[in-house]
Design a protein around this nucleic acid. Sequence first.
DNA 1: TGCTGTTTTGACCAAACGGTCAAACCAACG
DNA 2: CGTTGGTTTGACCGTTTGGTCAAAACAGCA
Lengths: 208, 208
Amino acid sequence: MTGVKDNTGGQTRIQRDKIAQISEAALDVFSTHGFRGATVDQIAKAASLSKPNLLYYFPSKEAIHTHLLENLLDTWLDPLRQINPDGDPLDEILTYVRRKLTMSRDMPRESRLFAYEIIQGAPNMGAGLEEVLKPLVDGQAQVIRGWMEDGRLRPADPHHLIFSIWSLTQHYADFDVQVRTVLGPKVTDPFPQAEDYLVTLFTRMLAP
Amino acid sequence: MTGVKDNTGGQTRIQRDKIAQISEAALDVFSTHGFRGATVDQIAKAASLSKPNLLYYFPSKEAIHTHLLENLLDTWLDPLRQINPDGDPLDEILTYVRRKLTMSRDMPRESRLFAYEIIQGAPNMGAGLEEVLKPLVDGQAQVIRGWMEDGRLRPADPHHLIFSIWSLTQHYADFDVQVRTVLGPKVTDPFPQAEDYLVTLFTRMLAP
DNA sequence: TGCTGTTTTGACCAAACGGTCAAACCAACG
DNA sequence: CGTTGGTTTGACCGTTTGGTCAAAACAGCA
């Protein structure tokens, strides 16, 4: 038989290993060069595989990219999903901010991959945005709005509040070079400063 | 003679026109596909020129890209430069925010071009960042710090304050697709909402 | 050991790409 | 009108790239 079985879930351990190995390498390459900037040879080399071998596990370069994006959106939105409507409003927001910032620190490649895709107009995620992201955001925006109407948070547009959390936290991953250049070489890790700043910012913004 | 004279400034009107025309087209293409994703043919077509004709005005694809970036950094940092140390602190910051947001609205292609470059690690702007951006930011950060020490603004890390203004304003250009998807089709122009939100955010953050 | 299905690879291909070149074109001016 | 210098182009080139293929190598089991 030619190529790997489709998504039946019935994969050999060796197949899952190789696919994971390729995904890891592809994440590296795609996140630093973008989709068009990345070459199959680069990914294969990074995965310690020959090019035809790589294409035995994935039918095409695009398939690898799609595979990464599919797994990404859920991970990416997970912290937002975890906002607890029954928790303390400000705590919930600050926890969300911290989680997102931690993701920027620990998963900068995923952040950049995501950024590339959105900047380009999300050509490979059109469905995901409309059908996954929007409903989730709308739902949590309602929760936040409720808090504001109850006087437990200062009023502000909940959608733009969420945008601002995304933008501020992801900035430290996507624009890492710029941040580090401006802060200078003495600052080896910008994230503690960033966390302090963001906690202050959202506390002043939202504490009733 | 082959090719266009170098940067003597002594250019024909026709040359300046064509170069502007090419720059315009290249900005379009580079900002939507990135450097590697863009092809010379695409740019030529967008500029209504044949490929060899385009390469008569610019020696290479990279030269066009570099040309765009060179002109970009100054434009990009101009609003920051305009912060007036003798003005009212909060007014100055809010004016800066509004200017940056206006740039996101009116120059989204430039914003994306910039974003691509930074995400990639600024391979064609290494000098500019260290020598132009950092000193300017450090200078204005000092001005802001002065205001805070005089009690005219609530204290906060000035560098991260500037980062947050960049990140929030540029978000509306770079992640336009995401913003519009989440806000839904009823919102034809997110920018008025964004301005309200950001003014509120930075007022609550900084007003003494 | 021999057989079977999976995995790996060197060699190869067609398309796309950045860039070149000589020849044609054209505007302007004497 | 003819010459001159800048401009435009079709044809072409070498390289890179995504992807294919048939054959070899290998793992596991009877």
